[in-house]
Design a protein around this nucleic acid. Structure first.
Lengths: 377, 377
DNA sequence: CTGTTAGCGCATTCAA
DNA sequence: TTGAATGCGCTAACAG
């Protein structure tokens, strides 16, 4: 029925071992022999049995790329870039040579699914795993992930983090590429402050994610430096692992009042912005957790009959492709998603040497566009 | 070193076969025995060896979802929905029970990569494969894909098409869910015609894709019905397999003049729109191949100092989430991407019976919003 | 309901 | 440079 290595060997009049060596290419084989084997492969339309191969070799050519939301270009861009580096150029023959199979796994932001996927990849003896995007800060889950990654690394799987902060004990990881979310958030708010804004609303992401926290901390750092916040440290409002930040009415009054949390989607931006405008009609600027949320914020501002940026400035984060097409074009913070993804892919393939200490921080660049302007006098 | 089934069996004081049966759950096992085995699994932190399992069972739990562009929400939404149905709810334990491993593979729209991924999935003995989005119409490639899918089906892989037209000989396929691109395109243009538009520019997708052709055909059907096109059949300008449509100056004059092809991205929409405005300054409406392209078109229109919709109407296709947030909100054609993806996922899992004949056409709904209006008098 | 027995198809020793 | 032999870890008959 199904063609096996042995069939190819018989047809090429060589031993199975020789066929294996030709196919894997990592062993000297006479040119004429190779020729014969390759012809037999084509004649028989032979396709290697992946599981058998992986079983014998104790490793597979699967590379997993975990994303929080596959429908979000933020992840799509990184994953696509990583895949470019991992999948190889393809020889165009469709014969599938030594390439890896780069596959993206959608966790939907769920810690359970993240763990499940890691187990599944572990089960497959994946060659490498790339985790993209912010992590959930629940200590239990973080410990579980760390443990799982350690086991994966133990079994020879290369683990790379992309757009995610390093693990507490980064030993299990080949490399961590972290975005400078905090710096970006700070510069964005500094920009608004320099325009003259003082009452700035913040539509934050889900509470328990690192990305959310870092961007918000950057924002508050800037606010504090401008003397617009009570005392306390930068992380004050969110310290303690992010399980809740509703306390601290004393020095966190403005913070709490001017911050609303929600998922990283358009709807959340819309709703949160309406809420902010209700709570504090005097806000002159809204900073959103990311560009998608910012789009929702813009819609809400408009629906309230306010103009952007004349009445209210709006800013986002990420600089996704659509942001430049918003009307007015969105002021945001550019993250080099494609470059980071590609680098993560190379790191996963061992095609690039890891940064010193295994950790690299990737700069975030402020992009000033039409959606921000000085507040009305 | 690494824990195997035998180790678990020894610890639970049962035979390896029993452990296997417990893990796969598809066989009666005494509750007490199961209990003991499960405990041993946890104690030993055992993880099934996927390749070994797949080899012995001659099938794996991999399900591949092929997409043309992972950074495009059009695909992300479908893939995410499919994954939801395939991956199962996950039992939350991270232990990974009988779920399938749904993975998305990014072909980047390249026929070679599509074939390579199919081979890779064939090699892995994938349980199912879902192909999303339009196909490339090159006959050679189509034949190669058909042949490959037939082999996959032969080997027991369930093949599902989602948002892709049925294969010429659909035998290899469990089901094909095709979008009514043609009908959607027609209704969209009819809407513009009913508003009074007569000179309508069309920013089409890449020439050789089915999606491009069907949407364009719908547009031309409507134009022809309104007597705005020369003779010929609907597919006239693109007949012959899409290898080129530059001929036919006789009855295709306006068609060619008012159509520009390009990739499905924002940049293409921008450039093509400028080109259209240059060729034919009298156009009063621009129809774009999809929403992303439409966004680029809007930008171009604006950069030329024209207002939407007062000076020029713009319309898209797909109704991606951001389209409602465009300013003005984009008139477009809604495709139930999530529902279609979910259904494809269920079909791939055998959780839903295929439509009669294996083919279902999914309706496209016109969404009239602010970006279209009657032309200036 | 559970144990025993054979492979699944390939990569890799070790010889030649 | 090539061939022969062995086992990777598991599932699927078949008994019991």
């Amino acid at each position: 029925m199904t063609v096996t290595l042995a069939d190819v060997a018989a047809r090429a009049r060589v031993s199975p071992a020789t066929v294996s060596r030709v196919l894997n290419g990592n062993y000297p084989v006479a040119a004429s022999t190779r020729e014969r084997v390759l012809r037999a492969v084509d004649d028989l339309d032979y396709v290697l049995n992946g599981p058998a191969s992986s079983l014998a070799a104790a490793t597979s050519d699967l590379v997993g790329i975990l994303v929080n939301d596959i429908a979000d270009p933020f992840f799509g861009i990184m994953a696509g870039a990583a895949q470019t580096e991992i999948g190889g150029p393809g020889d165009g023959s469709g014969r599938a040579g030594g390439e890896k199979l780069a596959v993206v796994c959608n966790t939907g932001g769920s810690p359970e699914r993240e763990l499940t996927y890691l187990t599944l990849l572990q089960r497959q003896r994946a060659a490498a795993v790339v985790l993209t995007g912010g992590a959930v800060e629940d200590p239990v889950h973080q410990a579980a992930v760390s443990a799982k990654l350690a086991k994966l690394a133990d079994a020879g799987t290369r683990v790379v983090l992309c757009g995610r902060p390093p693990l507490p004990d980064g030993e299990a990881v080949v490399a961590a590429l972290a975005f400078d979310n905090r710096g970006g958030g700070r510069r964005l708010t500094e920009h608004l402050l320099s325009l003259g804004h003082r009452r700035i609303g913040y539509v934050a992401g889900p509470l328990e994610r690192t990305t959310t926290r870092h961007r918000l901390e950057g924002h508050r750092d800037a606010m504090r430096a401008a003397g617009l916040l009570g005392g306390g440290t930068g992380a004050a409002g969110l310290s303690g692992g992010g399980t809740g930040a509703t306390g601290r009415p004393t020095d966190g009054y403005d913070e709490e009042r001017l911050t609303v949390h929600g998922p990283y989607d358009r709807r959340s931006g819309y709703d949160a912005t309406l809420e902010l405008l209700r709570r504090e009609p005097e806000v002159t600027a809204i900073v959103a957790a990311n560009d998608t949320v910012a789009l929702g914020a813009c819609a809400a501002v408009r629906d309230r009959g306010l103009r952007i940026p004349e009445d209210i400035s709006v800013a986002g984060f990420d600089d996704l492709p659509f942001s430049v097409d918003a009307v007015p074009a969105l002021t945001t913070v550019r993250l080099p998603l494609f470059e980071a993804g590609a680098r993560a892919g190379r790191l996963a393939m061992g095609k690039e040497t890891p940064p010193p200490g295994g950790i690299a921080t990737i700069a975030a660049e402020l992009m000033v566009r039409g959606s921000t302007a000085p507040p009305r006098a």
